[in-house]
Structure formats: structure tokens, C-alpha cells
């Protein structure tokens, strides 16, 4: 998102249920919300903000499928073709014996692939400097940021909408890019 003026209005709420109803309220008043920052996940917040469901479960599935394929291909090739050997009178490709390793590699790749994707798409990495509109958002306050450059309404109008929706404070913050 571009910021024409890089100027944000920051509504501070102190209750999870208030911020949840405030989001609907503020959006119905024609204000575009930049993002809401909370100290813990609030169920239903993504829905009222109009966010689509996360595609991460699908990512996990495909990484898992890769793990399954990789494990089976590796074992069938190694034990069945590259160096076949009789162990305990079993078949070269003794499929039931391959299930544990297949399962473990499926889980390993699904987890690592999904978590890696999550970190990349959410741009989280060691040492990244966070954009904090209010540092209390990781403690006990719920922060609603509104980008003035993206809204047609004036700062005063938005301030009163935020106040009416239950914000205990409304601050202005200039974000330097």
C-alpha cells in the first residue's frame, strides 16, 4: 500500500469486544482501515476486516505431498533398484516397512514448508524492524490504524468516528518510509 502523506490516525481501544464491534462500525462509516494490531488473536476479527481465509493449510498440504513423494521415491529407488538386498526374507520393496519414514518426511516437509511460507508472506525474519503505531499493542491495547492518504474523509471526521466507536485515545502518527 502506498502512503501519500504517510500520516496515520491511530485509534487505541482497551477491550477485545469493543474493538471487534468498532471495526464494523468504522468500516460502515466509510473509513478504510489500514490494519488492526492486537496483543492476542481475536476470533472473528479477520472476518469483520474482510480478510480472506489463509491459504496456508493448502501450502502445508502440498509440502506434505512433496515429502510423501520424496520419501517413497528415495526408498523404492535405493532398496528396490540401486542396491537390492534381501533383509529378513522380505521383498526388495517392502512397502509396509517404508510407511514410518514416509510419514515422518511428510510431517517434516509440511511443517517446515508451511512455517517458512508463513514467515516469508508475513515478512517476519530475525532482526526485522517492526512498524509499531503504538508499542502498547503487544501489551494490553488494541490499535486501529487508519491511513489518511487512503481515505477521503478528513482527519477530524475520522477521529470522531473512531472516538464514537469506543476508542479511548486517538493519536496521529507520521510513518517515515
Amino acid at each position: 500500500m502506498e502512503h501519500n502523506e504517510n500520516k496515520f490516525l491511530v485509534g487505541v481501544y482497551d477491550d477485545e469486544d469493543v474493538v471487534l464491534s468498532a471495526v464494523t462500525n468504522v468500516r460502515n462509516n466509510g473509513v478504510r482501515i489500514y490494519e488492526v494490531y492486537t496483543p492476542f488473536p481475536i476470533h472473528g476479527l479477520d472476518e469483520v476486516l474482510g480478510y480472506k481465509r489463509s491459504g496456508l493449510p493448502r501450502v502445508a498440504f502440498f509440502f506434505g505431498l512433496t515429502g510423501t513423494t520424496l520419501a517413497l521415491t528415495m526408498m523404492i529407488w535405493m532398496m528396490g533398484y540401486d542396491w537390492p538386498m534381501i533383509v529378513g526374507g522380505k521383498d526388495f520393496v517392502a512397502f509396509p516397512d517404508f510407511i514410518p519414514v514416509t510419514f515422518e518426511l511428510t510431517v517434516l516437509l509440511a511443517s517446515l514448508g508451511m512455517v517458512g511460507t508463513f514467515l516469508i508472506i508475513s515478512s517476519l525474519w530475525p532482526g526485522k524492524k517492526p512498524l509499531l503505531f503504538d508499542s502498547r499493542c503487544t501489551d494490553d491495547k488494541f490499535i486501529m490504524a487508519v491511513d489518511l492518504g487512503k481515505n477521503k474523509l478528513s482527519a477530524d471526521e475520522i477521529t470522531s468516528i473512531l472516538k464514537n466507536s469506543g476508542a479511548v485515545e486517538v493519536n496521529t502518527k507520521i510513518v517515515e518510509e
Binding site: 494490531y37 496456508l56 502445508a60 510431517v107 508451511m114 508475513s122 517476519l124 525474519w125 524492524k129 503487544t138
Partner: peptide, 28 residues
């Protein structure tokens, strides 16, 4: 700061975080 990966508590990130936790639980 380094350890927290630049976490800011954005609603979108929490939504993904919840999805990740649930799938990791399902895999674990």
C-alpha cells in the same frame, strides 16, 4: 528485537498464525 522477528500483532498475521498453529497441532 532480533528474536521476535519484527512481530507487530497485525490482524492478518494473527490470522495466519492461528492457521499455522492449528495445522502444526494437527501434524504434531
Amino acid at each position: 528485537g532480533i528474536l521476535s522477528f519484527g512481530w507487530d500483532g497485525a490482524a492478518k498475521t494473527w490470522q495466519r498464525y492461528e492457521a499455522v498453529s492449528l495445522i502444526l497441532a494437527g501434524l504434531s
